[in-house]
Amino acid sequence: MINIVWAIVFVLVAPVIGGLVVGIDRKITAHMQGRVGPPILQPFYDVGKLFEKEQTVVNETQIFYAICYIIFMIFTGALFFAGGDLLLVIFALTLAQVFLVMGAFAANSPYSYVGAERELLQIMAYEPMVILAAVGMFVATKSFNVSEIASTTIPVVLLLPGIFLGFLYVLTIKLRKSPFDISTSHHAHQEIVKGVTTEFSGPSLGLIEISHWYETVFLLGFVYLFFGFNPLIGVAAVIIIYLLEILIDNTNARVKWQLVVKSSWLIAAVVSVVNLAALYYLSGGVP
């Protein structure tokens, strides 16, 4: 069931793809704002520069948490692409995320502290929808294994239209895009004091940046699962959805955390109740 080759491919290729996605994202964003924008390889130059800088810390434990964050983020993605159990993937993601939050808490600094609390609010906001997306996929395909969900011939997205929309809603949170970038933003242009990452600098900030690339690829992989029945449609859908996220990012102002939590929960509850109720009803009460 677990395919080690795919895991290794993910570990090696994902940062390249992730970095390119971010580079393209910045280019498109710039064009939307009437700017020329940086070269597409700019994210790699940025991270390269971060690693050349001197490591300054508030205390040494921050580096430990940054390393744990990237290790478990890679672990999450590798497990996902190896075709592992989707729920276990989600739990590993939570573990990785908690390490980032701990890194922010560890600095004992007001700005990163607020960032950490808000990051936790974000986790609380998206977690139910992500778990329920996995549950929806199980109901649709009778399996939690990514390998089986990805290779199914069942048009998952047609069975889970509500859950798919709900997942797209929280995807904006996960990609750290406006209007839901309440703990730290995807782009540097918005502020210098960037929430959870305030006290990270130099190489440790570089690690967090690379983790974000890994995470982006993993999330796009998750989106693909809804379209696994047809790889062509799947890849097209992933591209369209990412473009949509860029559009949303550039046309919305950041909202308050209250709205993020409330709206994500409301949407998660409504779409999953309606969607799952329909699926259970159609299959006579049991999945």
Binding site: T94, V98, F105, A106, Y113, I123, M124, P128, W265, A268
Partner: peptide
């Protein structure tokens, strides 16, 4: 799923206090 998301919040913020 909702209850479980809440447990993450209250445990993690406590853990964060300890490891500051």
């Amino acid at each position: 799923a909702f209850g479980s998301a809440m447990t993450i919040y209250f445990w993690a913020k406590w853990m964060g206090k300890i490891i500051s």
